[in-house]
């Protein structure tokens, strides 16, 4: 819903702050299949953009890179040296395809929140945060059991060495809940909540600016509208930062979970 539609729908003379209805999207056009909504379109576009970008960058690699290959290599080195090697270790390079796809897919999905016309970060719908988090979760459990064995996995997780035996009875439930249930939960919610709140904040300031500068222009309200306009720009810049940061943190946690599964000593 655009700001104009939103205000027209309210119809009142009072300013109405945008609520959760700005996250509700029907089919793209009348008669479109019910799954074809703006968020799914954004996800599909993100996949195409990421694939297209890396195809352009690496399909014909030159020894001396130039243009888009340069950008692709900087991105690759960033993920490898900041995430894969520090968090997984020597065998981190093996996980680069996964981490690279995760990072750039989520980065592009998030950045769609500030791209004109799109203006919706796909993970502001929790489903688009849950699915990548669930993939990482299944991968983490699979790798842990493969590397440590089923018994070894639960022993390493629930019984950290060096505690008196009676304390295990008290502390093991905390470990179990934390590792098995809360980890994937916080992993998904962290991404979702940041995108949700960011989108709501931008929508709020944009609505303030639109309402007080165009819809109901009064001498007193104009300054408020101007403030909303300036804040929209500031918060958009801030959101670009948050979107990049959350994509980084999501991938960092994925790498950390994979590293923890492969090297259970910590």
């Amino acid at each position: 819903m655009s700001a104009r539609q939103l205000l027209a729908a309210e119809g009142g003379n009072e300013f109405q702050a945008p609520g959760t209805e700005i996250f509700e999207w029907g089919p793209l056009w009348h008669g479109a299949p019910s799954w074809l909504t703006k968020p799914t379109l954004i996800v599909a576009l993100s996949v195409i953009i990421v694939c297209g970008f890396f195809w352009a960058a690496f399909s014909k690699p030159k020894l001396v890179p130039r243009g888009v290959q340069n950008v692709g290599e900087v991105g690759y080195l960033f993920v490898r040296d900041q995430l894969a090697r520090p968090l997984i270790g020597k065998d981190g390079d093996k996980w680069m395809p996964f981490l690279m796809s995760t990072f750039f897919f989520i980065l592009v999905m998030n950045l769609m929140g500030v791209v004109p016309v799109m203006q919706l970060p796909a993970p502001s719908h929790i489903a688009f945060a849950i699915v990548p988090a669930a993939v990482v979760y299944v991968l983490m459990i699979f790798l842990s059991i493969k590397e440590q064995g089923l018994v070894g996995y639960f022993r390493n997780m629930m019984f950290p060495p060096g505690l008196p035996a009676w304390l295990y009875v008290i502390l093991s439930p905390i470990e179990l809940l934390s590792n098995i249930i809360l980890r994937p939960f916080t992993h998904a919610v962290r991404l979702f909540a940041n995108m949700f709140a960011g989108h709501l904040i931008i929508a709020f300031f944009a609505t303030v600016a639109y309402w007080f500068l165009f819809e109901k222009l009064t001498p007193l309200g104009a300054s408020l509208g101007l403030l909303g306009f300036v804040m929209t720009i500031i918060m958009t810049a801030f959101e670009i930062f948050v979107q990049a940061l959350q994509a980084f943190i999501f991938t960092l946690l994925a790498a950390s979970y994979i590293g923890g599964a492969l090297h259970p000593d910590h």
Binding site: L87, R183, L252, D265
Partner: peptide, 15 residues
Amino acid sequence: ADHRAFANAAWSIPS
């Protein structure tokens, strides 16, 4: 290993 331990600690405390 230090780096890994630090990152793991920082991110698993909330959970």
